[in-house]
Design a protein around this nucleic acid. Structure first.
Length: 727
DNA sequence: CTAGGGTTAG
């Protein structure tokens, strides 16, 4: 199977240079400390000026060394002039050392011999305040300068506006703006950005339209703001207007335009913009190149992205973002093997592995279930010491969880000091996907206790935890709580969780009424959810209703078709079943073949039902036969009759006796030492008979077995499953 | 005589 071969190749590729046996190899010298530990803590995670693309940045105080050198030179001078103070303070501001800048300012005020701060100094101070993100210091500085009667020019006023905007006080920024006598283009741009940051798209558009001073930045701001607020069509419209108005593009324009093109999947527009980049001779600009590559990646044109990367990597310049753009691109396109291959190429070329790229590599391992490679990525993270950020921690937690090791996921989670919403949500999802609803809710409570406000994604996770564990009362409670306490308006996803919650628990009337009462019957997903619940509880009437609705919405996919025809079949309505199958055939809807795979020692082994392709097939089947005998002695009765017509099960699987997951497990047992846990992956939902059998196998062979199917995990141990048979 | 300050993004 091609997929298996690709996976195996990827596994083999990553392993040798990363394996812990050769700690002195070049690939294992990521010099992470220098690059990551020296990072300034006050700056926004990705916005530290020293990391900006080479083509557009200004010189500034860089990193710890630069700051200390400057500070030493400053301390050595006897006459500390205003420009000297300005240099120190604004240097801190630009270098992300906001607290240091504030300390320098305090020092200046306390030093009797120092000159009185002027507009230049204060602009730097206000930028530090903005960087700290807390209004209080900013407000005090603002008040102080008003009382002292510091001459207020446009630039200083703009610094005040910006400070309020960055501290989240958009209204205050707006009021200060309208109070200004002389507004320049920058003033308009700051308020424009404040409006957009506060989510006031309409206000921003109005402001933009009435502005007398529109420059390239104004256009960039409104377009990117529209994109960020989900108004992609409107943004495209503005981009066209910008072209018509003859406004010059700069690298920000291109970056925004490319993300717009990828968001709308407008490859044609992307190519057109690419042409403009060439004409404008911006091809060598790191920033522009990355967004160009990102556009091609998101449009699925990996080869185009790669050719840009290869052409451009000849230039010196700042390449590290380019590597992660490519790796992330491969992951987005489901090409995990190539993502890892590319990562290895980066290490070979001596580029250190940083958080940004490790996050994507971890995601690749998570998606493909490559636990061994994932552990190696974790090794890189360990090298960062405690300097890894929450997004990277989330990726590692997610990786362990999706690779079947909830314990490792928890261990990683516990180690992170500064947990953010996304990390809490990742952990919550992990418990939910293992069917541990109670633990998931405990995470939610702990998160609340630590005063972290959950977002809409967190609540999807909470509700799905409830539905997967049959916690109906709790689900009701949190659905109400999310609206009343957190002011979250339920989205289709939230509604769907509720349908699932009632449906899975067998409350089919409640589920159906819920759909009708909440006006969500135009959403195909809720009917699919109801349909699966009907299959679970064998409710023919509502199954028919759901499939009719799906038909009306023209949303019948392979799963729904197979599910419905199987329901007819189990009710002996063979004619209906046959009719549905043939209609499915006519509409060219095909069922995905089921397959399972297992990772052993950096190789991946994939099996389909009745697979004979493995060299040890004879041995595998012999063991499997023996094992099944043993299971029967232990009291296992085949439930194959229940699942003859199971949804995601292949026609021939039954005839071939063994589903692919059983074969993968048998192979795992005979290929690994006694007592070693097994992790199996399946591309579809696995069947009730296999679920039952694996419970027995875990006891008979005394193994922990983790099965990841399309939707969730089952952790089998000593004859029972973590889902407690509710799934 | 000179220096030194503010906006947009992934």
């Amino acid at each position: 199977m091609a997929r298996a071969a690709r996976k195996a190749a990827a596994a083999a590729l990553l392993s040798p240079p990363l394996s812990s046996s050769s700690p002195s190899s070049a690939a294992l010298q990521p010099r992470a400390g220098r690059y990551l530990l020296g990072r300034n803590t006050g700056a926004a995670s990705s916005g530290a000026p020293q990391e900006r693309a080479s083509g557009c940045g200004q010189p500034c105080l860089v990193g710890a060394r630069g700051f200390h050198d400057a500070r030493r030179a400053f301390d050595g001078t006897s006459t500390r002039s205003l420009p000297a103070w300005t240099a120190i303070i604004s240097g801190c501001a630009r270098g992300g050392r906001h607290a240091d800048g504030m300390r320098a300012f305090a020092e200046m005020l306390g030093d009797g011999g120092a000159p009185a701060p002027n507009a230049f100094v204060l602009a730097g101070v206000l930028r530090c305040c903005a960087g700290l993100g807390d209004v209080e210091p900013g407000r005090r500085v603002h008040g102080w300068m008003l009382r002292r009667g510091v001459r207020q020019d446009v630039v200083l006023c703009n610094a005040v506006l910006d400070m309020y905007a960055k501290c989240g006080h958009h209204d205050r920024a707006r009021r200060a703006f309208w109070a200004m006598a002389d507004k320049d283009a920058v003033s308009w741009n700051i308020v424009l950005s404040a409006c957009l940051q506060g989510g006031d798209v309409l206000g921003a558009v109005r402001l933009f339209d009435e502005s007398p001073l529109r420059d390239t930045t104004s256009w960039n701001t409104i377009i990117s703001g529209l994109v960020r607020n989900g108004c992609a069509a409107e943004a495209l419209d503005r981009l066209r207007q910008m072209v018509r108005a003859g406004v010059v593009f700069n690298h920000y324009t291109y970056s925004t335009a490319f993300s717009l093109a990828s968001m709308l999947s407008l490859l044609g527009l992307g190519r057109q913009l690419h042409g403009r980049v060439v004409m404008a001779a911006l091809e060598d600009d790191a920033f522009v190149c990355c967004s160009l590559m990102d556009m091609y990646c998101k449009c699925g044109e990996m080869e185009a992205a790669l050719s840009i990367f290869d052409r451009w990597s000849w230039f010196t310049g700042d390449v590290k973002f380019a590597w992660s753009t490519m790796v992330a691109g491969y992951v987005q396109n489901g090409r995990e093997e190539e993502a890892l291959e590319f990562f290895r190429r980066m290490l070979r070329e001596g580029v250190p592995a940083e958080q940004f790229i490790l996050t994507s590599v971890a995601a690749a391992c998570a998606n493909a279930g490559m636990v061994e490679q994932g552990r190696q990525v974790h090794g890189f993270v360990e090298k960062l010491g405690h300097a890894f950020d929450a997004p990277l921690a989330s990726a590692i937690v997610d990786m362990y969880s999706k690779c079947g090791s909830l314990e490792d996921a928890c261990r990683m989670f516990d180690r992170v000091q500064a947990k953010n919403v996304a990390l809490w949500t990742t952990m919550l999802c992990s418990y939910a996907s293992y069917g541990q609803g109670r633990m998931a809710l405990e995470i939610f409570n702990r998160m609340n206790a630590e005063k972290i406000t959950p977002n809409e994604i967190t609540l999807v996770a909470v509700l799905s935890a409830c539905s997967h564990s049959g916690l109906v009362g709790e689900g009701d409670h949190y659905f109400k709580l999310m609206q009343e306490e957190y002011g979250i308006v339920p989205s289709t996803e939230h509604y769907n969780c509720m349908v699932d919650l009632y449906g899975r628990a067998g409350l089919l009337d409640k589920a159906k009424n819920f759909i009708e009462e909440n006006n969500i019957s135009h959403e195909a997903i809720v009917w699919k959810t109801l349909l699966s619940a009907c299959r679970l509880h064998k409710h023919m009437e509502y199954a028919k209703l759901a499939s009719e609705k799906l038909g009306q919405l023209e949303q019948c996919d392979d799963g729904s078709y197979v599910l419905m025809s199987n329901m007819y079949a189990t009710n002996n309505k063979w004619l209906d079943s046959f009719k549905l199958r043939s209609s499915m055939w006519k509409r060219k809807v095909r069922k995905q073949p089921g397959q399972s795979w297992i990772h052993l020692k950096n190789a991946v082994y994939t099996f389909v039902a009745g697979d004979m392709s493995h060299p040890r097939s004879t041995e595998i089947y012999a063991y499997l036969e023996k094992l099944m005998e043993r299971l029967k002695e232990m009291g296992y009765t085949s439930r194959i009759d229940l699942v003859v017509h199971d949804v995601e099960e292949e026609q021939r699987e039954t005839a071939l006796k063994f589903h692919s997951e059983k074969i993968a497990i048998a192979f795992g047992i005979i290929s690994t030492p006694v007592g070693m846990p097994l992790r199996i992956f399946k591309n579809l939902r696995f069947c009730e008979d296999c679920h039952e059998a694996i419970k027995f196998i875990s006891r008979a062979a005394d193994r922990e077995i983790v099965v990841r199917d399309l939707y969730r995990f089952h952790h089998f141990k000593s004859g029972s499953c973590s889902c407690e048979d509710f799934w």
